[in-house]
C-alpha cells in the first residue's frame, strides 16, 4: 500500500470528551499533516492526555469524530501506536524488558498466537534503536525512569506504525534519554512517520516540534510551531482559565445533565 502523503495523519472534528459527565475537552477541531513531530501543550488538567486517549478509543467520545488517514480508527489500528504515561503501569509486574517490547508485536500477531522467533528479532532490533539491547533480559522493576520510558518506546517501535501518540515521553527522564528520544523522533519524522507528543516543558517546544497543538480544555491554536507558538497564544493557553466555561462544566455534572440532547 502506497499511502497518499497528502491525506492528513489525524483529523479531529468537533470532539467533546467528558469525565463523570463534566466536559474536559470542548468541541476540538484540528487537522495534522503527515511526517510532523507534533507537541500537545497546555497547563495541568487541560485535557492533553485525554485528547490522545480519545483518539485511541480508550475513552468514549461525547460527540464528534476522529479520523486517521481519513479512515475511522478501527480500519487503521495497525498503523497507529500508543505510548501510555510511564506511571500508568505497575513496573513491579513480573516481566522482562523483552516481554514488554514483545507486546508491541501483539497487534500484528493477533489473538491466541504466541510471539515467534522473528518477533523476538524485531523486538531486539527496536531495543537497539533506543540503546537498550543490553537490558533485554532485565526485570522491569530494576529499570530507572529513563530506561522504563525507552522500553515503552521500543514497544511502540515494534508496532511499526505510521502514527505514534506518546503521553509525556519526556517526563522524569534523564538528559541522555531525552536526547535519545528526540533524535529517534526526528529520524521517524524524516521517514514520513507522524509523532504526536504530550509535552510539559515549554523551553524545548520550538526546538523539538514542527507543529504545536495548544490546549486548555478548548483548542487555543494548532499549526506550525513558528506561526503558532506565539506570546499571545501562550498567554491565552496558560493565562486565566475561562471561569464561566469551568462553571458550566461543573453545573452539567452536578445536575446530572446529559452532555448532548438525545436525538429524537
Amino acid at each position: 500500500m502506497a499511502p497518499d502523503t497528502n491525506v492528513p495523519a489525524l483529523e479531529v472534528h468537533d470532539l467533546t470528551v467528558a469525565f463523570d459527565r463534566k466536559p474536559v475537552l470542548w468541541n476540538i477541531d484540528l487537522v495534522i499533516p503527515q511526517g510532523k513531530i507534533v507537541g500537545i501543550i497546555g497547563p495541568n488538567g487541560a485535557g492533553k492526555s485525554t485528547l490522545i486517549k480519545a483518539v485511541m478509543g480508550i475513552l468514549p467520545l461525547s460527540s464528534g469524530y476522529t479520523k486517521l488517514f481519513d479512515l475511522p480508527l478501527n480500519d487503521v489500528r495497525g498503523r497507529i501506536s500508543y505510548v501510555p504515561q510511564r506511571e500508568s503501569v505497575d513496573w513491579d509486574f513480573p516481566a522482562s524488558v523483552m516481554d514488554v517490547v514483545l507486546m508491541g508485536r501483539y497487534s500484528k500477531l493477533g489473538l491466541f498466537k504466541r510471539p515467534r522467533k522473528a518477533d523476538r528479532d524485531a523486538a531486539l532490533d527496536c531495543l537497539r534503536k533506543v540503546g537498550m539491547e543490553a537490558f533485554a533480559n532485565r526485570q522491569i522493576s530494576q529499570l530507572s525512569g529513563g530506561q522504563q520510558q525507552r522500553t515503552f518506546l521500543a514497544r511502540a517501535l515494534a508496532q511499526q506504525a505510521d502514527v505514534y501518540f506518546m503521553d509525556e515521553p519526556f517526563a522524569g527522564v534523564d538528559a541522555a534519554t531525552e536526547k535519545t528520544i528526540i533524535t529517534l523522533l526526528r529520524t521517524m519524522a524524516q521517514s514520513g512517520k507522524t509523532v504526536i507528543v504530550v509535552h510539559h516543558d515549554l523551553q524545548s517546544v520550538t526546538n523539538y516540534f514542527d507543529w504545536v497543538i495548544m490546549l486548555n480544555t478548548r483548542l487555543i491554536a494548532s499549526g506550525p510551531t513558528q506561526e503558532t507558538f506565539t506570546q499571545d497564544n501562550l498567554q491565552e493557553t496558560y493565562g486565566g482559565k475561562l471561569t464561566l466555561l469551568a462553571d458550566v462544566g461543573d453545573l452539567i455534572r452536578r445536575e446530572s445533565f446529559p452532555q448532548r440532547e438525545k436525538k429524537l
Partner: peptide, 22 residues
Amino acid sequence: YILFKEFALMAFDKAYAKSIGY
C-alpha cells in the same frame, strides 16, 4: 493456555491492550 498472552497484557497495561484493538 490459549489466552495467556492476552490475560498477561491486560494485567500489565490495559490501556495499551485497548489501543491495539483487543
